[in-house]
Computed example of a mutant assay.
Amino acid sequence: MGNKIYSPHLSTARDARAIRTREALRAAMLELLESKPLEQISIRDIVAAAGIGYTTFFRHHPTKEALLDELAAEEIRRLVDLTLPVMDAGSEMAASIAVCAYVDERRALWTTLLTGGAAAALREEFLRIAQDLATVRSQPGDWPPVEVATRLLVGGTIELLAWWLRQPEPLPGSEIARIHHDIVILPVLRGRASVGRLAPPAIEVAAKKRGRR
Rank of each mutant, 00 (worst) to 15 (best):
G2W: 05
N3E: 09
S7K: 09
S7D: 07
S7Y: 06
H9L: 15
S11R: 13
S11E: 11
A13E: 11
R17Y: 10
A18P: 02
I19G: 05
I19H: 02
R20Y: 04
T21A: 15
R22Q: 12
A24P: 00
A24W: 01
A28L: 06
A28R: 00
E31Q: 11
L32D: 02
S35Y: 00
S35K: 10
K36F: 01
S42T: 15
I43N: 01
I43M: 02
R44I: 09
I46K: 03
I46C: 00
A48D: 08
A49W: 00
A50L: 00
G51Y: 02
I52S: 10
T56N: 12
F57T: 03
F57W: 06
H60G: 01
P62I: 06
T63F: 07
A66E: 11
L67A: 08
L67V: 04
L68W: 05
L68M: 11
L68F: 01
E70D: 13
E70W: 03
E70S: 12
E74Q: 13
E75P: 00
I76L: 12
I76T: 12
R77I: 03
L79M: 07
L79A: 07
D81G: 14
D81A: 15
T83Q: 15
L84G: 11
M87V: 12
D88S: 14
G90D: 03
S91D: 13
E92T: 11
M93T: 00
S96V: 01
A98W: 12
A98S: 03
V99W: 04
V99Q: 03
C100R: 07
Y102N: 05
V103D: 10
R107F: 09
L109C: 12
T112W: 00
T112V: 01
L113G: 02
L113Y: 04
L114P: 09
G117C: 08
G117F: 14
L122P: 06
L122Q: 14
R123A: 03
R123M: 05
E125I: 00
E125S: 12
I129T: 09
I129P: 02
L133R: 05
L133D: 08
T135A: 08
T135C: 03
V136E: 11
Q139V: 10
P140G: 04
P140Q: 01
D142H: 03
W143T: 06
P144L: 01
P144S: 02
E147T: 10
A149V: 01
R151F: 08
L152C: 08
V154W: 10
I158Y: 03
L165R: 09
R166I: 00
Q167F: 04
E169N: 08
P172M: 08
G173F: 01
S174D: 14
I176V: 13
A177V: 03
A177F: 09
R178Y: 15
R178W: 14
R178M: 14
H180D: 01
H181V: 02
D182C: 13
D182S: 14
I185N: 03
L186C: 04
V188N: 07
L189Y: 04
R190P: 00
G191C: 09
A193E: 15
A193Q: 11
S194C: 09
V195R: 15
P200C: 07
P201A: 15
V205S: 09
A206Y: 09
A206E: 05
K208S: 05
K209R: 10
G211A: 14
R213D: 11
